Simulated scan of single mutants.
Amino acid sequence: MRLNEKQNISRKQLPGNNDYLAPEQDEIEVSLFGPGYGESVLLHIGYNQWVIVDSCIEPVSEFPAPISYLRRINVDPAIAVKQIIATHWHDDHVRGLAEAFKECKSAEFVCSVAQTTKEFFTLVAVYGARSMIESTGVKEFSEILEILRNRGTKNKFISPKFAVEGRCLWQRNTKPGDQSQPCAIYALSPSDASVLLAQIGLSKLIPQVGETKKRVPSLGPNHSSVVLLVTIGQDSILLGADLEETGNSNTGWMAIINSGTRPKEKASFFKIPHHGSVTADNPQVWSLMLRSKPISSLTPFATGKVFLPTKDDVVRICNNTDKAFATSIPKHPKSRSRPKMVEKQLKEMRIKLRSVYCSPGQVRARGRYIDEKINWTVQLLGGAIELKDIYH
């Protein structure tokens, strides 16, 4: 299918600041950025109300992509961003999150309830901002907690809002007046069982007395990840974060599907989880939680011998929808040679450096709520591409 045929898609390269226009007041926007380092979702709910989900860094500016974009379209993040949501603490989803939160002075900070455990706060204390062993995810949370402390007063402690299955995180109308549609953001995960498993996993990462500190690895499967459902009238937006399928009815995607408290509005936009990997796929999500052929997008991932999505992943996703997009093509960066002494020190400290690959992009969907659904228009910016063309 050609661009602009049936799908209402346009492709353009990233323009200069003066060429970017903000959405209209009554327009909904979902923008997916990546893979600078990780991924980020930016939502416009309407009437200059914005929400940032996760963060990634632009390779050139080394600044959070959603903040750069907001400035490019002349939106002040200090006023317009109402919430910043961290779906989980893994490095590739929170790089630059503290910087983004610093810029969004009136935003509420939301994170997984799994980040309230004693084990996670112990990790923050051990691997916080002053640690010589860099662990980006924990370091970002340490800095965010410090920002919250500074924003509070002696008589007013500002706490993060914690996301857990079934909790409404935010609720407003899309616009003022009689024609407004109710809008809400719900956390669909983690489940109680997932929080317990995340707690057990975190306890294993805390170094014992006398043990050398090591870089904190990402845990898998990702039990603490926060899946979000944004409901707008009778339509919705499903943001899959990095939640994986576990084969257990009380955790992962099956826990969401089996939930009796889950809002039943089917989504017309789907942020595909875990870079399109089969480990995060559950066919019932497509049949029970999504409208037919939803707009779907993902960020690619490439490290070591791992390329996501794989060719099989692309075929599987495209069999479910012909409106699937990726922010870039997955490819490895060229390796860089370093002095032997530097390589030795990195090895001793168990630090692995990963370069960012080129051509980060943005999948941007905008639409208005008409006749009980959002009529989307998709733009592919920078290195973004239709998913079916990713391996061509």
Rank of each mutant, 00 (worst) to 15 (best):
P273G: 02
P273T: 07
P273A: 00
P273E: 01
P273I: 06
H274M: 06
H274A: 08
H275K: 06
G276F: 00
S277N: 06
V278D: 00
T279P: 02
N282I: 01
N282P: 00
P283M: 00
P283V: 11
Q284I: 00
V285G: 02
W286Y: 14
S287Q: 00
S287V: 12
L288V: 04
L288W: 02
M289N: 07
L290Y: 13
L290H: 10
L290N: 09
S292P: 01
S292D: 07
K293N: 15
K293M: 07
K293D: 14
K293I: 09
P294G: 10
S296Q: 01
S296A: 14
S296C: 01
S297T: 15
T299W: 04
T299E: 00
T299D: 03
F301V: 10
F301I: 05
A302I: 04
A302H: 08
A302S: 04
A302P: 08
G304A: 07
G304Y: 10
G304I: 13
K305N: 11
F307M: 04
L308E: 03
P309W: 00
P309N: 03
P309T: 07
T310N: 05
T310M: 02
D312T: 12
D312N: 10
D312I: 05
D313Y: 01
D313M: 01
V314T: 03
V315R: 14
V315C: 02
R316C: 06
I317Q: 06
I317G: 06
C318Y: 01
N319D: 14
N319T: 13
N320E: 03
N320K: 13
T321V: 07
T321C: 04
K323R: 15
A324P: 05
F325R: 12
F325P: 12
S328L: 05
S328K: 05
S328M: 00
S328C: 08
S328N: 13
I329V: 14
P330H: 15
P330M: 03
P330I: 12
K331G: 13
K331I: 13
K331E: 04
K331C: 04
K331F: 07
H332N: 10
H332Q: 11
P333W: 10
P333K: 10
P333Y: 09
K334D: 14
K334R: 13
S335H: 03
S335V: 08
R336H: 12
S337K: 14
R338N: 09
R338I: 15
R338Y: 13
K340A: 13
M341E: 15
E343N: 08
K344R: 09
K344V: 14
K344Y: 09
Q345L: 14
Q345M: 14
L346H: 11
L346A: 11
K347P: 03
E348R: 09
E348A: 12
E348C: 08
M349Y: 14
R350H: 09
R350F: 10
R350P: 00
R350L: 00
I351D: 07
I351Y: 03
I351S: 12
K352Q: 10
R354Q: 04
S355C: 11
S355A: 15
V356W: 05
Y357W: 06
Y357Q: 05
Y357N: 11
C358T: 15
C358S: 13
C358L: 14
C358Y: 12
P360E: 11
G361K: 02
G361R: 02
Q362V: 15
Q362L: 09
V363A: 08
V363R: 11
